[in-house]
Design a protein around this nucleic acid. Structure first.
Lengths: 336, 336
DNA sequence: CTGTTAGCGCCTTCAC
DNA sequence: GTGAAGGCGCTAACAG
């Protein structure tokens, strides 16, 4: 079903049909209605690839993310999806599994797929080869969750957020506060959050114990077992993401510690599920949906202007401390 | 950067360049290497829309799902994404928020986007207008999670699964077993699972109390409060999905009941997160990733044969009873 | 084995 | 306000 068929049946030229669809005012009302009617009768749907080929715009956005198994990114993608549809764009998501070579492959794939722009969550903007190559192509893009002065980014101030959280814990009487993180090298977010932790501890005049680095989330429970049994075990844990926090709570439980009575746990991300857990997860909530939405909006805006997005378009969205039940005041301990 | 440029620089015709890429054996080794080198130098990437226009195949699959906020579907989409990439396809996901009109809009959008095939999770295959229209277009499609004799489906036997679960509970001494579900009308899955529940109860010679129907997951806690306070409250809950199970556990907790000591809770879906909760969620686990993967594989296979997928290609994958900590034997109660 | 050429369906000047 | 025609980049006959 092509524009030709519609033109023929309506007794007008293809140009008129095209205009009736794309510039309704450039055509007489009567012809427009005629064309619309015929198109409907014929179930005509404009051919996207032909249009793309002709206009050099696909109205498709590529999305590169680590995984959908972390609800954080699923929530963000949902935000992206809604905003994209609202803006008349389709999205093509690709997951990388936190692997650098997959990042490159994804960007390559998407570029070959003629996307008009890209939203990506990379491991580390400063060192990402994929990002460097992407940049050189002149395709508009925006980073989500990442933060770097040379790139347009939409995220929250993870450093300040964690420093805040530490301050809150201190206010509640905690002194032995440890941080649990995934592999630091694997993401700039983890690094920022850890910086915030150290800053928070320093500000409170506390000595920061070594970072509890968990290579695979699955091994979190094991990694924590030892730490939580020590005589000078922490009374509070700040986790670099909610999934780690959930596993930390489990580790505490397995170790015979009650949360929050014996151990306070704070997460980071604000996944929706956290509110329904028992105990409800105390966490630093990011507006995951909005991060996605704003990324799309920035991108669409830039593309409309025919430009690429600059670093100074970056958005730092507010985070929220979501009070839950996994965090409480420290009990008085003589060992302090 | 077009094929023309490559041809010119390499001193061959565009046809040769095209062949060098698509049928490497149909050109001399030397020409192929020449073309490849020049293409690399020029950073040439074949234009997807031109190819699609010419071949009438987009190598893109549309995916219609209710939401990404339920990890079940996020896990499935992850499976779809991986399998699609492996098969050389891009995916374009659209969420419907469980709304029928959004289902139609999504199908329309995707069809207009020139997808070669569709994977969808609809509310109810028997009544879906979107599905009827899709079918009439002759575009290959497959349903995931849905089950219907007239459509190709990839899912598990939800009815048998729940009946099994009831039998297990009975074996553990439970007699007052209630089911918690979302709106029955909103999904055929919920209906199947409920049928399984009634069958299981009937088989055990037990009277099934009224279904606890929760219109919005957010209201689950309220909806359950009353039921759990009653003197003849259930000793076990079978929930139609894991998110409901998690909220049911919370409701129990808020009502002063311990899980599993005072109340056993079984979920359905097998979201990964369930294993990390405390108590670890006992659930009927579906192979979410595989459901996605198989859907893609069936579709690609059918498309390769140039055919549409028939109902008899449907796949019923195995489910697993995942033992957790939210379910235990019933305590002896004189009131039984 | 390689080159020439005709469209795929659409948009967009340029005439009228 | 409408029509005619070129060409976006590519593949697939068809020739050579």
């Amino acid at each position: 079903m092509s524009i030709q068929a519609v033109a023929a049946k309506a007794g007008v030229s293809v140009a008129t049909v095209s205009r009736a669809f794309n510039f309704p005012d450039k055509v007489t009302r009567s012809t427009r209605e005629l064309v619309e009617r015929v198109a409907r009768e014929l179930d005509y749907v404009p051919n996207a690839s032909a249009r793309t080929l002709r206009t050099q715009r696909s109205r498709a956005l590529g999305v590169v993310l680590p995984t959908l198994l972390n609800p954080t990114f699923a929530e963000c993608l949902q935000g992206i999806a809604r905003a994209a549809i609202a803006g008349g764009y389709a999205i093509i998501p690709v997951t990388t599994g936190y692997q650098l070579d997959e990042e490159e492959r994804a960007v390559h794939l998407l570029l070959a797929g003629n996307v008009d722009g890209l939203i990506l969550v990379v491991s580390n903007p400063a060192t990402s080869a994929a990002l460097a190559r992407l940049r050189s192509t002149g395709t508009p893009y925006v980073l989500a969750y990442n933060r770097h002065p040379d790139h347009p980014c939409v995220t929250v101030d993870g450093e300040a957020a964690v420093a805040d959280a530490v301050a809150r814990l201190v206010l509640h009487g905690h002194r032995r506060i440890a941080m649990v993180s995934g592999t630091l090298a694997a993401s700039d977010r983890a690094q920022q959050r850890y910086r915030g932790y150290r800053k928070g501890m320093a500000d409170a005049g506390l000595k920061a114990p070594p970072l509890i680095e968990v290579p695979f989330v699955e091994s979190a429970v094991d990694a924590l077992a030892g730490v939580l049994q020590a005589s000078s075990r922490p009374t509070a844990l700040i986790c670099s993401n909610d999934l780690l926090a959930i596993r930390s709570i489990r580790a505490a439980h397995l170790g015979g510690l009650r949360v929050p009575d014996d151990l306070s746990v704070i997460g980071f991300d604000g996944i929706a599920l956290g509110e329904d857990l028992t105990p409800a997860l105390t966490t630093i909530a990011q507006p995951n949906n909005d991060i996605g939405r704003h990324s799309v909006e920035l991108l669409i805006q830039a593309m409309a202007g025919g430009t690429t997005l600059q670093a100074d378009a970056s958005l730092l969205l507010p985070y929220f401390f979501r009070d839950g039940e996994s965090c409480a005041a420290a009990r008085n301990t003589a060992t302090d």
